[in-house]
C-alpha cells in the first residue's frame, strides 16, 4: 500500500508520470468504453474532408487525455485512500495517432483541514513527444493525515 499522506507530501513534489501512446486502435477502444463515437475520433475517412481541428486525421478524445492526466492523481493517491475531489483541465492541442502523451503533476499548495479533510492542489499537464502542451490544469486531492 502507498503511504502518501498529507503530512508526508512536500510542496513542489512531483508525482510519478503516466506515459501513453495514442493509436487509432486505442482511440476506437476508448470510443467504446466512453460511448463517445464522434466521427472526429473514429472515422479516418470522414475527417479527411470534415476536419473539425483543421487537420485531415482523427484525434484522440479530449476525455482520454484528461483520463491520462487524472490517472497521475489516482495512481498517486488512491492506494492510500486519497480522493481526487476536483479536476479542472483545459485542452490546448489535439493528439492524433502517433502522439506519445507524457502526463505529470506537481504539488503547489497544501491546505490543512480537519481529520482526513486536508487537501493539496496539484498542477497537472499532458505534453507530446515534442514537449508541446496538450492539456494544462489543476486538481484538488484530499489526503489522509
Amino acid at each position: 500500500m502507498s503511504n502518501v499522506t498529507f503530512s508526508s507530501v512536500k510542496l513542489e513534489e512531483k508525482l510519478p508520470e503516466v506515459v501513453q501512446e495514442v493509436t487509432q486502435e486505442r482511440i476506437w477502444k476508448y470510443a467504446a468504453a466512453s460511448l463517445d463515437f464522434n466521427p472526429v475520433h473514429i472515422d479516418p475517412e470522414w475527417v479527411k474532408t470534415a476536419q473539425p481541428f483543421s487537420i485531415p486525421v482523427t484525434v484522440a478524445h479530449g476525455m482520454m487525455t484528461i483520463s491520462f492526466v487524472t490517472s497521475v492523481l489516482t495512481n498517486w493517491a488512491f492506494p492510500s485512500g486519497g480522493w481526487v475531489r476536483k479536476i479542472d483541465v483545459k485542452l490546448t492541442k489535439p493528439a492524433p495517432p502517433g502522439t506519445v502523451e507524457k502526463c505529470g503533476g506537481i504539488v503547489t499548495e497544501k491546505h490543512p483541514r480537519g481529520k482526513n479533510q486536508s487537501f493539496v492542489v496539484v498542477e497537472v499537464w499532458a505534453e507530446n513527444q515534442n514537449g508541446e502542451k496538450l492539456a494544462v490544469g489543476t486538481a484538488e486531492v484530499v489526503l489522509p493525515d
Partner: peptide
C-alpha cells in the same frame, strides 16, 4: 454532446 464536429476545450469536474 453527440454533435459531429464538436471540439472539447476542457472540462471541470467535482467528485463527492
Amino acid at each position: 454532446i453527440r454533435t459531429p464536429g464538436a471540439r472539447n476545450p476542457g472540462q471541470k469536474i467535482e467528485l463527492y
